[in-house]
Design a protein around this nucleic acid. Sequence first.
DNA 1: GAAACTATACCGTCCAGACGGTACAGTTAT
DNA 2: ATAACTGTACCGTCTGGACGGTATAGTTTC
Lengths: 182, 182
Amino acid sequence: MPRKPIARDAVLDAFEALLIEVGERAATLDAVAKRAGVSKGGLLYHFPNKEAMIGSLLERMDRLAALDIEAMKAAPEGSAAFFIKSSLWADTPLDRVFVAATRLAEVAHEETRRRFAGIQQQWLDVLAEEVGPEMAKAVRYMGDGLYFNAMLEGGAGDTEVKASARSADVGALLAAVERLRG
Amino acid sequence: MPRKPIARDAVLDAFEALLIEVGERAATLDAVAKRAGVSKGGLLYHFPNKEAMIGSLLERMDRLAALDIEAMKAAPEGSAAFFIKSSLWADTPLDRVFVAATRLAEVAHEETRRRFAGIQQQWLDVLAEEVGPEMAKAVRYMGDGLYFNAMLEGGAGDTEVKASARSADVGALLAAVERLRG
DNA sequence: GAAACTATACCGTCCAGACGGTACAGTTAT
DNA sequence: ATAACTGTACCGTCTGGACGGTATAGTTTC
């Protein structure tokens, strides 16, 4: 059996972290390799080019999103409440890959945008089963707004403070969801 | 009398358009000059460097946002309904500069992020006067979600189709706002 | 006559990617 | 069992191109 490609995941993690913290512009191959503790040559061994690296990150996103949608369907508190809660930045693997991918979509990366649209549609479908198609949109836009703000904050400043400030907002949103459902 | 600096606004418009349509990465000085129908030298005559150009764009945003907030306060249908409607992508000057600036915030441009936070706070304050601080957050997140989606779509694909699809969503959001207010 | 440009040449830096090499785990032939 | 071989998993360096910015000489418009 050949050695395990431990560097592969390390590279993907580093790429993700740099996208979140310093944006797409600064997530260069050199920077990713350095952060992953790998040489640039080693990085390019696993991912023949940058596009391939992005492709692997998107696969990771699809995989995690599929799990999230399953959990959402099965959530005892209802899919809408689950959705709002999980839209809050909590540094989960899904949160991370999502914000990282947003950085790519922002630079007009078409494939990334397509994947996003697909996942959002799935969320909407599940929400619509619980609160109807109209209110589902309201709920989804609230969640999107939460992501939008997480993305704007990025890695800058005091993450702790901002996270707790936003978790207070979730209470308000859950109350709003209750009203919308009633 | 010297000629009027018509190129200045043309450059800013071109920069804005490129940010929206092809992202920050592709909005290079050469590309901006070409799109504005101006030589690179001419561009740099008005803006000594790229940062200065960004600064001017942010000034434009602040100016337009201030007008919007005044209109919001004076809106007969209420500030919340006005806010939701105006969060829809309608290709207005404010919409354009806002999405363009989002592209900069996404690449971790700190000054841009600060300006955003300031404007968002003002919106929240006005909304809170009408629907209270809790529901104001719900409304603002919905608006943010609308912007988030406009931003993800960018200039790619059929803008007409997507705009009309989203304007249908606004009906749902306005209904949601009604419920939240009641 | 001066502001508002055009046009072009150039510099330093950074980046994606190519390339040639090395270390070593596992396999096969003896 | 061990020497010879094979393929995977890397490392370090180099190159070509793009980008931000400088410089400068000339041209148009008011």
